[in-house]
Computed example of a mutant assay.
Amino acid sequence: MDLFDDLPEPTQTSCSITAAPIKAQPQSTKEGEEEEKGVKRKLDNADSNTARRGADEEEIKKVCKEGLPVLKGYVAARRGEREEMQDAHVLLPDMSSFVSALPKQVSRVSYFAVFDGHGGARASRFAAEHLHQNLANKFPTGDTENMDRLIKKCFFDTFRQTDEEFLRKASSQKPVWKDGSTATCMLVVDSMVYVANLGDSRAVLCRMEATPAGDGQRRAMTLALTKEHNPTMYEERMRIQRAGGTVRDGRVLGVLEVSRSFGDGQYKRCGVISSPDLRTFQVTTNDRFFILACDGLFKVFSAEEAVNFVLNILQDKSVEQRVGLTEEEARFEAACQQLASEAVRRGCADNVTVILISVNF
Rank of each mutant, 00 (worst) to 15 (best):
A19H: 11
A19C: 11
I22Q: 14
K23V: 09
Q25S: 08
P26W: 02
S28A: 07
K30A: 14
K30H: 12
E34F: 07
E34L: 13
G38D: 11
G38N: 13
G38S: 10
V39L: 13
K40H: 07
K42Q: 15
N45Y: 09
A46Q: 07
A46C: 06
A55C: 08
D56N: 14
E57L: 12
E58C: 13
E59M: 14
I60K: 09
K61R: 12
C64V: 15
G67I: 03
V70T: 10
V70I: 14
A76R: 05
R78S: 05
R82Y: 02
M85D: 10
D87E: 04
V90Q: 05
L92H: 04
K104T: 13
Y111K: 03
F112M: 02
A113Y: 06
V114Y: 08
R122L: 06
S124P: 00
H130M: 10
F139T: 01
P140C: 04
P140A: 03
P140M: 12
D143Q: 12
N146E: 14
N146V: 11
D148H: 13
D148E: 10
D157E: 13
Q161S: 12
L167D: 09
Q173D: 08
V176W: 01
T182H: 06
T184L: 10
T184I: 12
C185K: 03
D190L: 06
D200T: 04
R202L: 07
C206T: 07
R207A: 02
M208K: 12
A210V: 03
T211R: 15
T211P: 05
P212F: 00
P212W: 00
G214N: 01
A220S: 08
T222W: 04
K227G: 10
E228Q: 10
H229P: 10
H229S: 03
N230H: 10
N230L: 03
T232P: 05
E236F: 06
R237M: 13
T246A: 10
R248I: 11
G250N: 06
V252F: 04
L253C: 10
G263A: 04
G263V: 00
D264R: 00
K268I: 05
G271H: 08
V272C: 00
P276D: 02
D277F: 05
L278C: 04
F281K: 06
Q282C: 10
T285R: 12
D287Y: 09
D287M: 05
F290P: 05
A293I: 02
F298I: 00
K299T: 07
E305H: 14
E305C: 13
V307K: 01
L311I: 15
N312L: 14
S318C: 08
G324S: 09
T326A: 01
E327P: 05
E328F: 08
E328I: 15
A330L: 00
R331Y: 01
Q338W: 03
S341E: 14
A343Y: 02
V344Q: 09
R346M: 06
A349V: 13
D350H: 09
N351Q: 08
V352F: 02
T353G: 10
V354D: 01
V354W: 06
L356K: 01
I357D: 02
I357S: 07
